[in-house]
């Protein structure tokens, strides 16, 4: 918690300087665990449906109303090429800011808040092209592999004719 407060008060740099660590929100899709830096997360809410958007790619789940603004929802499973999620009330939308936009990501569940050291972040191994495209790096935590999501990559290419 202390690290979090520091970050809030003094900005990211001081937190890095203090601990050289970062906090992640970890969430799961099937067996896989992914994470995003906690500072980008705005809100976590239960899946409650979305209005589908026509003429967009399969992984664009639609749009929801977030306190009066319209926010697009991206289906992370579909984004990784594993077909669309069949969401239930137990599925979760993680709302994050990407640049000046807010987007939601549909995941199976939020599992944890992790503190990891930046030094422990490794490059994504070559091979799986979707992973290299969508991940910033990989970090091991309690013998679990956590993929760090590159949000900009996830939200790009949403239009059908791209």
């Amino acid at each position: 918690m202390e690290a979090l407060n520091l970050r809030d008060d003094m900005g990211e740099n001081s937190a890095i300087a203090a601990h050289n660590s970062m906090q992640l929100i970890a969430f799961s899709i099937g067996e896989q665990t992914y994470g995003v830096e906690i500072t980008t997360v705005r809100e976590i809410r239960a899946w409650n449906g979305a209005t589908p958007l026509p003429n967009t790619r399969e992984f664009v789940r639609g749009v929801i109303n977030l306190r009066g603004t319209i926010v697009p929802i991206f289906d992370l499973r579909a984004r990784f090429g594993d077909g669309p999620t069949s969401p239930t009330k137990n599925h979760v939308v993680v709302v994050m800011s990407v640049g000046d936009k807010w987007v939601g990501i549909l995941v199976d569940a939020v599992s944890d808040i992790l503190t990891v050291s930046r030094e422990d972040i490794h490059n994504v191994p070559e091979g799986n092209s979707v992973d290299t495209e969508l991940l910033n790096g990989i970090v091991t935590h309690d013998s679990r592999m956590v993929g760090l999501i590159d949000l900009h990559a996830v939200v790009s290419g949403a239009k059908l004719d791209g």
Partner: peptide, 12 residues
């Protein structure tokens, strides 16, 4: 409401 605020223009 604008779709472009958080997304992009959608045809139609």
């Amino acid at each position: 409401k604008s779709l472009e605020e958080n997304f992009e223009r959608v045809e139609g």
